[in-house]
Structures are given as C-alpha cells and as structure tokens.
Computed example of a mutant assay.
Amino acid sequence: MTTTNSPGARLRHLLAGPGLITAPGVYDGLGAHLVARCGFSAAYLTGAGVAAAGYGLPDIGLLTATEMVDRARVAAEALGDVPLIADADTGYGGPMHVVRTVRAYEQAGVAAVQLEDQAFPKKCGHLPGKELVSAREFEDKLRAALDARADENTVIVARTDARGPLGIHEAVDRANRYAAAGADVLFVEAPRDVDEIEQIAAQVEAPLLINMVYGGLTPDTAPGTLSALGYRIAIHPGALLVPGVLAGLDALRRLGGTPPADFTPGPRGLFDLVGLREWSAVAERYRAGTPDPA
C-alpha cells in the first residue's frame, strides 16, 4: 500500500528536495512541540534520549520495543505534520521481531525506522566495545523490515556501527551492501574525522544520514559542508537533551546541590549520570566465563 500524505511520504518529499534536512533529537512531547514550533522540517526520536530522560537508563540496550513505541507515538502526535525519524536499535531481535517492530512504529506514526547492525544488547554508537552481527544477518533483517511496511513510503534507515570495531573500509562496504539490499537511507555511525566524513560521502552510493553527537567521536561539521558533500539528513540527538542536563545541574547547584565534579557533557558523562557504571558492573558479573564470587 502507498499513502501519498503519510509520514513517510512527507519525509520522502523532503529527501527529493534540495538542501540538508536537520532533525533535532526529541524524546518527549514537550521537545517534539518545541521542534515543530521552531520550524524544523523533521525530528529524530533518539534512543539515547528516551533511555536517559524517559527511563533514567544508559543507552546500552536496556529499553524494550514497547517502551520506544510508546515514546514514538507521543512524539509523532506532538509533531503533527513534521515527520519523525525513529531509532529502533537492532529491531529488538531477529527478522520476525523486526517485522513486529516496523509494524508497531508505523502504527505509532513515524516516517522512518532506523535499524542497526550491532549485536544485542547494543550500545550507544559513541561508546567503546560495540559488537556486530554479520552483514548477511543484517541484510535478512533489512529484507524483513522492507517487507513488513504497510506503507511503501515508510523510509528504512540502515545504520552500520562497523567503523569502531572493524574500520572505515568495512563500514563503507557494509553501507553499500545494505543499500543494495534495499535500504532507503544509509547511516555510517561515528566517523572519526573530516576525511572519513568525506570518504563516506564519496564512496557510499545512497542517500546519507550523519549523526552529530555533542561530545561524541564525530567532529561537529557545518550544515553547509555536509550539504555540499551530499549528505541528506543530519540528526542532532543531544540538541535538547544536553542543554537540559547542563541547565538542570546548574539549577540544582544554585539550590545548594553538589553536581558530580567529574561530569563531562558527552555520551559517557551523560550515561554515567543514569547508572552506566552500575549497569556495566551487572553485565560483567554475569558475563560468560566470569567466576562466581567467593
């Protein structure tokens, strides 16, 4: 089925036009209203933001599909006609789980579903220690996502996290494989410098999305530069989240609180505020091969 005025159709109309689509990150209804009222043409449902601000958790694969779909529905309703690009992590399982995820996200009103090739449980793309599934396994998930769409205009975004564990060449190779498998937009996570940003633009044969993470691994790059290179979408997951955290810490300091002295406003610092060290200790305790405590 094709719906000409669906969220996906509106996003595809933007992709067919000129210029870079800037999509600020949202994770609740208030932020979605702010993005719409400030005139942005698209928004991004940030998994990291939903985890941290919505549930007080680090972005290490602790959220469920149901929790993300609930937030997607709230954000999509608040955004109105502004299309929402929604983070769906690994699809929350194998191909059959991806089918259910895509159907639920569409019913929630999203314009695009973003899937990634990390193994479960995933991690924020700007944290170390990521593990991947094989490219073939992820291609199976992509085919499931494409087949599951009720509206053929729903955009499927394929993200590869191969740059960290396997290097930029493997990341580019995977992105091109995923484009050949039918993904509508390609997302190579966490290029390390401008040369890599340029390499991705030159060598990946598909519409491109880039992630501008405050304090992350990718250098902040001007919209005009990204547009000139051919990038079509720039997401800014921390656009509302990071200033909100900084303002909140300052407000609590003025009330007599003592903010953490070692806090830095990047992904690691943010996730430490919501228990990354503690959850990492839990994971390590139950890691296969770890001896039981005496």
Rank of each mutant, 00 (worst) to 15 (best):
G91A: 10
V157H: 12
S6D: 04
V242P: 06
S6Y: 10
A65H: 04
G93P: 08
A206Q: 12
L115W: 06
L63P: 02
S41H: 12
D70K: 13
M96I: 13
V245I: 15
L62G: 05
R253E: 14
A183Q: 10
L208Y: 09
V185E: 05
G182I: 02
V82G: 03
T46F: 01
Y44A: 02
A119Q: 11
V102Y: 08
K123D: 05
K123W: 04
V155C: 03
A158T: 06
P265K: 11
P243C: 09
A9D: 03
D70P: 12
R136H: 13
G224R: 14
Q118Y: 01
P191W: 13
L229N: 08
A190L: 07
L240G: 15
R277K: 15
F138S: 02
G93V: 12
G129H: 02
E106Q: 05
A288R: 12
G39T: 00
M96A: 15
T90L: 08
R285Q: 13
R100F: 11
Q107E: 15
P121H: 07
G29H: 01
G80W: 01
A108K: 09
I85G: 03
A112V: 08
E284N: 11
R177Y: 14
S41C: 07
G257W: 07
L273W: 00
E278K: 13
P259R: 10
Q114S: 13
R163D: 07
G257T: 04
R232N: 05
L229H: 08
A206C: 11
K123Y: 07
L14K: 02
F40W: 02
A179M: 10
E278M: 14
L241R: 03
V155D: 00
K141F: 05
T22F: 14
K130N: 01
L146M: 13
L34Y: 00
T46M: 02
A42Y: 01
D173R: 10
P83S: 04
P259G: 10
E170T: 15
L14T: 03
M212D: 15
D59S: 06
L11D: 00
H97A: 14
E152W: 01
E137T: 14
A150W: 13
Q203G: 00
A108F: 05
G39A: 00
G164F: 00
T101F: 08
I197F: 06
A72P: 03
A150H: 15
D70G: 15
V204F: 10
T90M: 07
A261Y: 00
E170I: 14
D250A: 14
V133H: 03
A86C: 04
D272V: 00
A75N: 00
P293Y: 13
M68E: 03
T66Q: 11
Q118K: 09
G17Y: 03
D272P: 00
R100C: 07
